[in-house]
Design a protein around this nucleic acid. Structure first.
Lengths: 196, 196, 196, 196
DNA sequence: TATGAATGAGCCTTCATTCAT
DNA sequence: CATGAATGAAGGCTCATTCAT
């Protein structure tokens, strides 16, 4: 017989709905801009009433934070797991950049929102965790990069260049091209590493 | 006694004041965000009354456009002049990137505003000119790059990487470091060009 | 085995629960204010879900009316019974004020809500009954007062003063003091009646 | 010749306009209730745009505070001046109550708003000054009352009764009756003082 | 009965812009 | 040219109420 939704199932439904809001908001905001999209418009695009969003988030900024959390935290986690594994330095860098570009490509909307709102993220106290995760990830990249034999440029410049390249990918990447996520990543790494 | 300012002098003063507004707005908006800074706040930071801004610009968006014009047009002009000169391809690329990075560094605030507002620039009809200038500049870079012997990566990827690196420079560059504008530019070019 | 509750028992339980909602609402609203307390907050304080309140009351205002009914109707009824009894005028006044102060003290929260919402009660059509009961009670006090030998002040002023004193009691009364309900009442009456 | 408005005159105009808003808000809120009157409605009644109110007050609650300040501070000041003068205790009480009732009657709307919002005033930190002034005034009355030969009731009860009477005056007083402010005050005092 | 997700009307407030001075 | 009071159109958010479960 049909089972009534249990408390757990209700929680799952809540989580699913919440995730839909996060993803939908990222999609709309990436296209139209955060400040250019009213909560009304967002709700309309999500097919719910404006007030409904406030069941899941206490305000527009909290929703923005959720989007950034969803972007930064999984990336940092996976990167840490990857770095913990044994590997040759160059291979490790290659894997890290692949992982990273894959995330940028898979969560392109989140990424575009993240970059769009950089000046907001850099300021408020409520953004501290996001800032810390971003910083931690950049440190990780820095360390991996330091162990590699790169072309003869200032190491800090190499890091900055890599950050610039990868993050900028969100601005131009279109799926269905022959430039897949891993080809892009390999290209970036090839620019950095010393020719063999 | 004091001579009355002539018509020309008035015009100069007007232009000087207008430029001060543009630069001040870029500075404030780069730090606090365009939408996060009200016209009142901006005026206060500029030391004038809110209404005063409307003597120079018909609205907030016109001021934003002026900032972007101030960034994109001189860059495109200088780049065109540079490309018109005779030079070896690799040297030409190097000079172009130097010019470009120099602009990014000198007009860092303008650049940060420009990037912050990318989704706005990409949409409205009033942004057509800015979009055209940006596109023209990117084409120029593409052409210069195509003539160079770069490392063996997809040419479109090399262009995208270069755009990413250089634009991202605005996010981290601080004056007074040993990484000067031209060293940064040279580093970027070194990453792209085939090792000799 | 456990007997199913009878229809009557269900009704009793319904009434008991309803009364708990009335009293709980009076308590919360007296402290936090009616408009400052959302139905959600109220429900939480009562240990039920927001929707649950609507099983007993068709809306927030109906609940407010119930609180006022609970205050005004018993008072008027008891006052009428008291006045119907034989007694010397001064003694009758004393008993009436005792009864009245006792109500104010026992239903202090109801009273505070009642006073807080005076401007609401004075307006809407749905408040006609409450207004009528209040008016009837005040007439009763007026009549009882008229028969007494009061100090030589305008009778209307004496009535107003008495109303002011007694109603204000809700604002400061705290149980466990030596000022009991009947001592307070006697004090008020002593102020009004001519010295013997 | 016509003088241009000086900076001082502009300030005066600002103050006058601000006072109009305070008085108008008191009038509307006394009649319709603070929470029952939207800022829009209030502005309409004042003949200005809704946003205009925010030139003088940073929010609805600040306007409410201004109303209460306008009520409590002058009263406290005048009462202090009065108490500082030489006088027989009973005469001093009479003058104090006259002053007090006169204020209640002259600022009837302010008073009604003040009472209506008692539970709000009693809570927030932004109400500390108003609470302090109210308390200081009540202390003053208490001291003056203590020196008088009152009827044989508990002194605290006498004070509470007086507070109840006087404050309640705002609820029923209508101008043009034969019960003038000073007759009302004298009546109240006569109730309290021992018969001669 | 009870729940709590969802609704949608309306509120307070902000802010780009105007205009009399 | 400059000011700053005033406007009015949204915007974010709250909350009483409904209803499927």
């Amino acid at each position: 017989m049909a089972t009534r939704p249990t408390r757990k199932a209700l929680g799952e439904r809540y989580d699913r709905r919440r995730q839909e809001v996060v993803d939908g908001a990222a999609r709309e905001w990436a296209r139209r801009g955060v400040e250019q999209t009213s909560v009304q418009q967002l709700a309309e695009a999500l097919g719910i009433a404006a007030g409904g969003i406030y069941h899941y988030f206490s305000g527009k900024e909290q929703l923005l934070i959720a989007i950034c959390d969803d972007l930064v935290n999984p990336l940092l986690e996976e990167a840490r797991a990857l770095v913990a594994r044994e590997a040759a330095p160059e291979e490790r860098l290659r894997e890290l950049v692949r992982l990273w570009v894959a995330q940028v490509v898979e969560r392109q909307d989140h990424m575009l929102v993240f970059q769009q709102q950089r000046h907001v993220i850099d300021r408020g106290a409520q953004w501290k965790d996001v800032r810390a995760s971003r910083k931690a990830f950049e440190r990780l990249v820095e360390q991996v990069l330091e162990e590699c034999a790169t072309r003869p440029v200032d190491p800090r410049l190499a890091l900055a260049a890599l950050l610039g390249m990868v993050n900028h990918t969100a601005q131009w990447y279109r799926p269905r091209g022959h430039l897949t996520s891993s080809r892009i990543a390999d290209g970036y790494v090839d620019l950095l590493l010393a020719a063999e």
